[in-house]
Design a protein around this nucleic acid. Structure first.
Length: 917
RNA sequence: GCUCAGGUGGUGGAAUAGGUAGACACGCAGGACUUAAAAUCCUGUGAACAGAAAUGUUCGUACGGGUUCGAUUCCCGUCCCGAGCACCA
């Protein structure tokens, strides 16, 4: 009987779907295990072989856990709101819902062919109103809460209002924007509008004016993690800084918790480090400099250097700029601000080392020395961090140093013996000088001493700053969740919960209006009770922030997740996905979860206990070499002799770097008459490892692989390719190896006539050893996500069993169970051939028994010069002369060991590998 | 610039509480089967040198040092590739 993978795979995929094999229910009698993939954005291009890598790994783990008796939740869905579908809609006029639906169906077809054990009854789509109802619901909850720093959690806004009514806001310790202090009396006197403005400064979901990343080409603002090197992540368009009023989420309130709770997570160190950097905690002090009678606050981590402050610098966007610019400097400052404004973010980054700036005309008073220091304006100071203003200490900060040198400002060294004639001395070490009461202290002592002085003088206090900004939450786009907010007399008012979901309206075009308003402004009757509704929509990360909770209870229309379901499934035990979400989704999701945790809607403080990042699968591109100005192509080995141009060639017409010449001529009309200079009768192509993409003609489609080799081979090969977490190139030519393995495995069960050739006698010791070695290795490797080495272990075991001519039923049956998480289709087929009626998913993992794998060994006393020195533990099979030989070969080792109290030396087979004292 | 991860045959990669480097697989070469091809099976395959051969010797895990009886593994320095952050005061 031949191994007919096409038939087998179709048969079992239908079987699983018909019998709902992978549907799970809450079952308190069994331990739960939740395995989650980062759900995909269904793009129009479909899947290439790189996409399923993580899904295959998580599927293997899910199936393995199921064999161990866990109740495994393994769902899948789609992150379906997003820019590409909308861009496509703008070009074609086709509604994004239609394209998205089409893409999802294509994705599902491709996923189904690979044989995943998803519980599809739990599928979610972020663009489904039944789903985004709960995204909007969470937003309303954030709108209705503020962050109390004393209780260190989110609290209802009513509680805050009660405090205001009772005593004003002087004693309120909450995460908030700039709010003036007021009394209960004053609060009572404020009108509706004023009150809502104040409360807005406290809400966790709030509307506020800040510098945002504006992408003119996409016509929308973007979050920090959606911008890389001054370009939008989606599309690569230039981004500029612009001050705008936008919806934001007060993620920064959770900075400390997001940082501290990383500790308990089983995530890779590099990923935790990335999040730590992104959160960017820095400890320092906020202190006040007097300028023109005003109190100007700045943040510094080096309070010890106040004696060295020779100037101050404001960010160009700072509100202080207008206040401090003197009439004499007005035109110079305006000119400078215009110059800065014109630059895109990318230009600013490119010109990082260029020093620019302008004097405001005002002077600040150094609080320690009483000296007057000039206030400058420069783009090297960022508006969004700290207070948007700094004290400059050119002697001990390289950026201040460069600025001082450029504008000829004084530089005062504060550390004994440091040389600041060429560069600044940035290190936090040495003994202070020129520093009044700090003289003689080390830097480490001086920092707290200086802050103590500041606090005594009541000109500042200790402060911790975070790099993490609040998340810009609105997008001026169509294809996203509408905000459940309307404007009653200009006041942002939440929609009642019963009105959810607020569905996306129909529009005649997906472009902004002529007046520059978002597309939703085109909708007729985009109002609630006659009041206008918000026209922005939510960003991509809104829908993906709590989807893992929805899978627990996907059809509940009373709650995001019922308490019972949440109590049972709790959080994700294993999350697999790409590292590109390190500073986006994975921060927002943790924030969202913590917020819901504060409100008591979920029982776990963290959403993803263990996280594994799969590495990217790169493409392997092939090249042909065209001799310039001809239509002649020269083989790789001979190309140095000619002046050639390298041209990408479709990897599908290249086999093992040999070009299919006829296919090449058919490939593009230009090449129909191509001539070739061959080596050894063949055209050899060059190759390079690049990103897998259409333009490089190196995309390999999983459907093709399934047709040619089968899904089981694809799954096994993707795992065999290399360590899961490492980036590695796809090269189809290696796939024959794992395909041969499956064919040989199949043949172990059948004779030439296609009959089962198994024996029911007791397995031999050698066979048991092979099996149990394999069980141990495979369990160990799966637990460590070292799938590539476990595939090798299967191959070794098969080679050994073939050498033993093994046809033992119980050995092979156990092999099939062990292999089934990797290649479920062939294993289901063999399982049923072996006479089992139920799916192999309901089998249980074979148990490892050490007694079958122990090496037989015995101990030899070894002596030198007639004196007993130590004992050797060696395989029993060795003869005495062989042992002597071993010792002689290791004379140096023996001499070294001789003097010590060595009890046992294990030698395998001729070198000492372990010493037990 | 800072942080993290990595550098092993023609290729993907094994092996690190320090102990036979190159498992497993691809590719390549040779052979068997076949009219032939495909498929399948067998043998060889890090490099150099010696030998008819079995085999032996030397070198070899980016480079230069160090610790050690012994280093791919530990330490110091250099170079290279990748990822993330990037004027964060």
């Amino acid at each position: 009987m031949e191994y007919n993978f096409i038939e087998i795979e179709k048969k079992w995929q239908q079987f699983w779907s018909k019998n709902k094999t992978f549907q799970v229910k809450r079952d308190p009698s069994k331990p739960k295990y939740y395995v989650l993939d980062m759900f995909p954005y269904p793009s129009g291009a479909g899947l290439h072989v790189g996409h399923p890598l993580g899904y295959i790994a998580s599927d293997i783990y899910s199936r393995y856990k199921r064999l161990q008796g866990y109740n495994v939740l393994h769902p899948m869905g789609y992150d379906a709101f997003g820019l590409p579908a909308e861009q496509y809609a703008i070009q074609t006029g086709q509604h994004p819902a239609i394209t998205t639906e089409k893409n999802i169906n294509r994705y599902r077809e491709q996923l189904d062919r690979i044989g995943f054990s998803y519980d599809w009854s739990r599928e979610v789509r972020t663009c489904d109103p039944e789903y985004y109802k709960w995204t909007q619901w969470a937003f309303l909850k954030m709108f209705a809460h503020y962050y109390d720093n004393d209780s260190d959690k989110a609290e209802p806004i009513e509680k805050l209002v009660a405090t205001f009514e009772r005593e004003g806001n002087a004693n309120v310790n909450a995460a908030c924007g700039d709010v003036e202090t007021f009394t209960a009396m004053q609060w009572a006197g404020f009108d509706e509008k004023k009150r809502s403005e104040i409360l807005m400064q406290y809400r966790i979901a709030y509307q506020g004016e800040t510098a945002v990343n504006w992408c003119p080409k996409l016509g929308t603002v973007l979050a920090n993690d959606e911008v890389k090197e001054g370009l939008s992540v989606r599309g690569g368009y230039p981004v500029e800084q612009k001050k705008m009023k936008q919806w934001q989420l007060r993620v920064s309130a959770y900075a400390e918790r997001l940082l501290n709770d990383l500790e308990g997570l089983q995530w890779s160190d590099s990923l935790k480090e990335m999040q730590r950097n992104w959160i960017g905690r820095s400890q320092g002090a906020e202190l006040i400099f007097k300028v023109n009678g005003y109190d100007m606050k700045i943040f510094t981590t080096r309070a010890d250097t106040v004696f060295g402050v020779t100037f101050m610098v404001l960010a160009p966007e700072s509100e202080w700029v207008e206040r401090l610019t003197t009439d004499g400097q007005k035109s110079a400052v305006e000119e400078y601000l215009n110059m800065v404004k014109k630059k895109t973010e990318r230009e600013r980054i490119a010109e990082t080392r260029k020093v620019t700036g302008v004097f405001s005309g005002s002077y600040a008073i150094n609080p320690f020395t009483g000296d007057k220091v000039p206030v400058w304006i420069s783009e090297y100071v960022l508006a969004g961090y700290g207070t948007g203003a700094i004290m400059a200490v050119p002697a001990h900060d390289s950026r201040d140093y460069a600025f001082a040198r450029h504008f000829n400002l004084p530089i005062i060294p504060l550390i004994e013996g440091c040389d600041v004639s060429q560069e600044s001395f940035d290190a936090k070490e040495g003994i202070m000088c020129n520093s009044g009461f700090l003289n003689g202290m080390s830097v480490k002592e001086a920092i707290p001493a200086a802050i103590d002085a500041v606090e005594r003088m009541k000109i500042g206090h200790r402060k911790i700053n975070y790099r993490l900004r609040d998340a810009i939450f609105s997008r001026q786009r169509y294809w996203g969740e509408p905000f459940p907010i309307y404007y009653k007399d200009g006041i942002a008012t939440p929609l009642p919960e019963e009105e959810l979901p607020l569905q996306l309206p129909k529009v005649d075009s997906f472009l902004p209006t002529e007046s520059g308003e978002p597309p939703l402004a085109r909708a007729k009757d985009w109002t609630y009770k006659g009041y206008p509704l918000e026209t922005s929509t939510m960003p991509g990360f809104a829908g993906s922030s709590a989807y893992y909770l929805r899978y627990m209870d996907p059809h509940n229309d009373e709650a995001l997740v019922s308490h019972e379901a949440d109590e049972y499934w709790r959080n994700v035990d294993l999350y697999i996905g790409g590292t590109e979400h390190a500073t986006g989704h994975l921060i927002y999701s943790r924030f969202w979860n913590k917020f819901l945790y504060d409100l008591g809607y979920v029982v776990e403080n963290e959403p993803f206990k263990k996280l594994v990042n799969q590495g990217m699968i790169q493409g392997r591109s092939n090249f042909v070499y065209r001799i310039k100005n001809t239509n002649t192509f020269v083989s790789y080995g001979l190309k140095e002799k000619y002046d050639t141009t390298e041209i990408h060639v479709d990897v599908n017409i290249v086999n093992n770097d040999r070009l299919d010449i006829e296919a090449f001529r058919r490939w593009m009309p230009d090449f129909a008459n191509a001539e070739f200079i061959l080596e050894n009768g063949e055209y050899i192509c060059g190759y390079a490892i690049e990103k897998m993409s259409k333009s490089m003609f190196n995309v390999v489609n999983p459907d093709n692989i399934c047709n040619l080799y089968g899904a089981d081979t694809l799954r096994l090969y993707e795992m065999f390719l290399g360590p899961l977490e490492q980036a590695k190139p796809w090269d189809t030519k290696g796939i024959d190896g794992v395909n041969r393995f499956l064919k040989r495995f199949w043949k172990l069960f059948f004779d030439k006539e296609g009959n089962l050739r198994l024996s029911d006698s007791a397995p031999s010791a050698a066979e048991l050893k092979v099996l149990h070695k394999l069980i141990r290795k495979v369990e160990e490797d799966i637990e460590n996500f070292s799938f590539n080495t476990s595939v090798s272990a299967f191959m070794i075991a098969l080679n050994e069993l073939q050498d033993l001519k093994c046809c033992n039923r119980s050995i092979l049956e156990n092999m099939v169970i062990l292999l089934s998480p990797f290649t479920p289709h062939i294993c289901e087929e063999l399982w049923s051939v072996l006479g089992h009626k139920e799916s192999i998913s309901f089998a249980s993992m074979p148990e490892y028994k050490e007694e079958f794998t122990i090496e037989q060994s015995c101990t030899y006393p070894v002596s030198f010069n007639g004196k007993l020195r130590f004992k050797l533990e060696l395989p029993k099979s060795l003869s005495a002369s062989e042992v002597e030989q071993i010792v002689r070969e290791n004379e140096n080792t023996a001499k070294y060991l001789g003097g010590n109290a060595i009890k046992k030396v294990i030698v395998v087979p001729c070198k000492i590998i372990n010493v037990v004292c």
